[in-house]
Simulated assay, not measured.
Amino acid sequence: MGVDRHPFRYYRTEYAVERFIEGSGLPYSILRATQFHELIAQVLGAAAAVPGGDAAAGRLSLSAG
């Protein structure tokens, strides 16, 4: 997902936390799991709330799992 280069504040914060953990001297593992389907569903749901956005959202049907 490129959290080290992503413009969204959420991902920049996640990356900063990873750097903090790495510098702590404690043993660690970092797992970056991308929940793509849920993200797209949220984006399309938000688009449907905008006038004219429901047309674009209605063309796709997403299901996770």
Rank of each mutant, 00 (worst) to 15 (best):
S61L: 12
S63R: 15
H6E: 04
L60W: 15
G65R: 14
E14G: 13
V50K: 07
D4R: 13
G2E: 06
G25C: 05
M1N: 10
R9E: 09
F20Q: 00
R9Q: 03
Y28T: 06
G45P: 12
F8K: 08
A46L: 11
P27C: 01
D4E: 15
G65W: 11
G52C: 07
L39K: 09
Q35K: 10
D54V: 02
P51E: 12
P51M: 01
P27A: 09
L62W: 12
I40Q: 10
S29Q: 04
P27R: 10
L39F: 03
Y10W: 08
S61K: 14
V50E: 09
D4W: 05
D4V: 02
G23V: 00
R19L: 15
A56W: 08
S61G: 08
E14W: 08
V50Q: 06
R19I: 10
P51H: 05
R9D: 10
E22R: 15
G65I: 06
H37T: 10
G25R: 05
G52Q: 13
T34D: 05
R5Y: 01
G23I: 01
F20H: 07
R32L: 12
G25S: 07
P51C: 09
D4Q: 09
A56I: 06
V50L: 03
R5W: 06
L60G: 07
R19V: 11
R32M: 02
F8T: 11
L39T: 11
A33R: 02
S29Y: 05
A16F: 02
P7F: 01
H6Q: 11
F20W: 14
V43D: 09
E18H: 07
P7Y: 00
Q42I: 14
G53S: 12
F36R: 03
V3H: 11
L31M: 09
A48P: 04
G52F: 12
